[in-house]
Each structure stands twice: as C-alpha cells, then as structure tokens.
Amino acid sequence: MNLLKKFTQNFEVVFSGFFLLITVSVVIVNVILRYLFHSGLFWVEEVATTAFIWSVFVGAAAAYKYKMHIGIDIITKLFPEKVREIISIIINFMMIIINSYICYLSTLFIQANKLKRTPVLDIPALYVNLAITVGFGLMTIHAIRFLVIEIRLFTNRESQKEETEA
C-alpha cells in the first residue's frame, strides 16, 4: 500500500518529465542534425508537440495535486472561515463534475472517430487524444480525494465544536 502510494505520488511528475525531456531532446537533435548534415528530421514537430501534450495534461494533474493552478481568492477571503470551507467543498465537488465530464467526453471523442490519423506520422489520433482521458481522469481522482478529506475535516470540526459547547 505504501509503495503503491509512493509510486502514484511521483508517477505524474516522472511521466510528465519524461515526455518533457523527449520534447526538448528531439528539438535540440533536429537543430544539430540540420546544422551539421543539412538535413533535419521531418517528424520532429509532431513528435515534439505530441510528447508536449502528454507532458501538459499529465503535468496539469500533478500541478492540481499540489494545488498549483492559479485562482483568485480575493472575494472568498472576505467570508468567515466556515463559509470559506463550504465554498471550498462546493468547488471540489464542481472540479469532480468538470474533470469527470471531460474524461467521459474524451471517451466519446476517441470512439466516434477511429479513422482519423495524425497529419505527419499518420498514426491513429488515439495516441494523442488519450492524453486528455489520462490527464483529466487523474484530476478527477485527486478532486474526489480532496473532497473526501475536506468533508471529513469539516464534519470533525463541527462535532468537536458541539462537544466543547456541550
């Protein structure tokens, strides 16, 4: 269990980092080949952008896990703590809906057009589109986890209050 947890904790960053390094490397290699041998690799652009798509969508899940996505809390900060906690729970609930809906749409999207292929490598578009399913699927899981944690914290605190009041 612990090992599994450790793996899933770093999985997204390792995965995303791997694809980021592919992106950087193929572009560098292409410049060098073109400069030295006057001939670049025609598939570099598509490989670089496809790897980047995977890096971004999986990386977005990693960033979400550590709450790195930027939002504006200037209004919500004005409310008392209890209201803020409720807002936070509602937001987590909405994040579950948004992310799982995208994940669901991506399965429709992939199924509906199996014939589509990528422009340069001429491989099935599935290999690119699946990044959406994986990225937003992972974010759905994190959102569920956050919701559970926050509800538990909230109810614990409420019952504690009741105890101290009683």
Binding site: R34, H38, S39, G40, F42, E45, E46, P119, V120, L121
Partner: peptide, 19 residues
Amino acid sequence: PGSKSYIDTLTAMGANATP
C-alpha cells in the same frame, strides 16, 4: 506544410523536405 503527403512528395522528388 507539416503534412505527410507533402513531405512524401518532396522527398520522392529528391529534396530534403523541411516542414
């Protein structure tokens, strides 16, 4: 352009296709 058919064409014609 970055499309396989163009790249294949120019390559067959003898050039180094550069998308």
